[in-house]
């Protein structure tokens, strides 16, 4: 019997139908088995515009369950308008618990940031990815980039990075710095700043990536080797905030926002990660990600 669903007002749990959820789940498993490799998937339309986090939503909605606690951030902030909208949507269709507290969350969906606070093995971080193909800048056609990945033929990529160095004295890539995963695939970490890139390496938590418009899923499992592309003589480095300080906390070993004041000349800096900033202000105990770049900065401070 076909149910009459005309103009109904209820939707499936977690919005996506079970058939599609299963497809996404199967592909997420394959993504985990082949770290850094982009798995094509159906990417059904969502009531959120393409480019606004549909890929992240597909992943979140395919994995979320009744006992999950969701945190949703955009540019490091829980309060960003799109994060609010996406959080509302997931909450509306799953009735899941939501939080701003990084430590409480079991699933963190993010756009363009990794939390400053260290993540545990009980947490999954889901990235919204605009362009999953790190080679797209050097090769515009999909069938060719796929071949390049298949054959580990990354000469073009290395050449482009080297050319940037010759021209500008540095690999100029800012956010979305390309990385080598498990020594096999070059992967786009999504447009996270370089500051966050080292935190993908040897992590405790699972990182899942969803690119909705481009219809690709990929993953970085815990304890996986993730290395930013660098040369013997031109090393990867994170953003330099050594000369500035957070206006509210005085802290500066974190990714910072730069805010021009109304006079258009003076600038103030604030810690970008809203929950981390809150915890610093409240003087709560908070364990930050550690990596060799952060360690170096901290050592220099002492």
């Amino acid at each position: 019997m076909i149910e009459n669903k005309k103009f109904n007002t209820s939707y499936n749990y977690a919005f996506i139908d079970e058939t599609t959820k299963k497809e996404i789940r199967r592909k997420l498993l394959k993504a985990v088995c082949i770290p850094g490799y982009q798995v094509p998937y159906s990417s059904p339309e969502m009531p959120i515009a393409r480019g606004w986090g549909t890929g992240g939503l597909h992943v979140t909605l395919a994995i979320i369950g009744q006992s999950d606690v969701l945190k949703m951030i955009d540019q490091g902030s829980d309060a960003s308008v799109n994060a609010c909208n996406l959080r509302d949507f997931v909450h509306m269709t799953t009735d899941c618990a939501t939080t701003f507290d990084t430590r409480e969350a079991t699933i963190i969906q993010t756009r363009h940031r990794i939390t400053e606070e260290k993540l545990s093995d009980k947490q999954i971080m889901v990235f919204q990815v605009p362009q999953p193909e790190p080679l797209r800048r050097v090769e515009r056609y999909e069938y060719k980039t796929r071949q390049m990945h298949a054959e580990s033929d990354y000469a073009k990529m290395w050449l482009t990075l080297y050319e940037a160095y010759v021209k500008w004295g540095d690999v100029m890539q800012g956010a979305g710095y390309p990385v080598m995963v498990n020594g096999r695939y070059i992967m786009s970490p999504s447009p996270i700043p370089r500051w966050d890139v080292p935190n993908l390496n040897n992590s405790e938590c699972l990182y899942l990536f969803g690119a909705g418009r481009e219809k690709r899923l990929y993953a970085v499992p815990p304890h996986t080797k993730v290395e930013p592309l660098e040369f013997e003589d031109v090393k990867f480095h994170v953003e330099d905030f050594s000369n500035v300080k957070c206006e509210s906390t005085g802290y500066n070993v974190a990714y910072m926002d730069e805010m021009y004041q109304d006079d258009g000349v003076t600038k103030k800096f604030y810690v970008n990660d809203s929950n981390f900033l809150d915890k610093l202000i409240e003087k709560e105990e908070v364990v930050q990600h550690s990596n060799k770049y952060i360690k170096k900065i901290k050592d220099a401070l002492q």
Binding site: Y13, E18, K21, K22, R25, L28, L29, V32, C33, I63, I64, G65, Q66, D121, L206, A219, P221, P222
Partner: peptide, 19 residues
């Protein structure tokens, strides 16, 4: 329950596959 059991079991498998 094909909605909730499937989800819980998938997460168990995902955890095992990731570790």
């Amino acid at each position: 329950n094909e909605v909730f059991d499937a989800q819980i079991h998938f997460r168990t498998i995902l955890d095992c596959m990731s570790r």
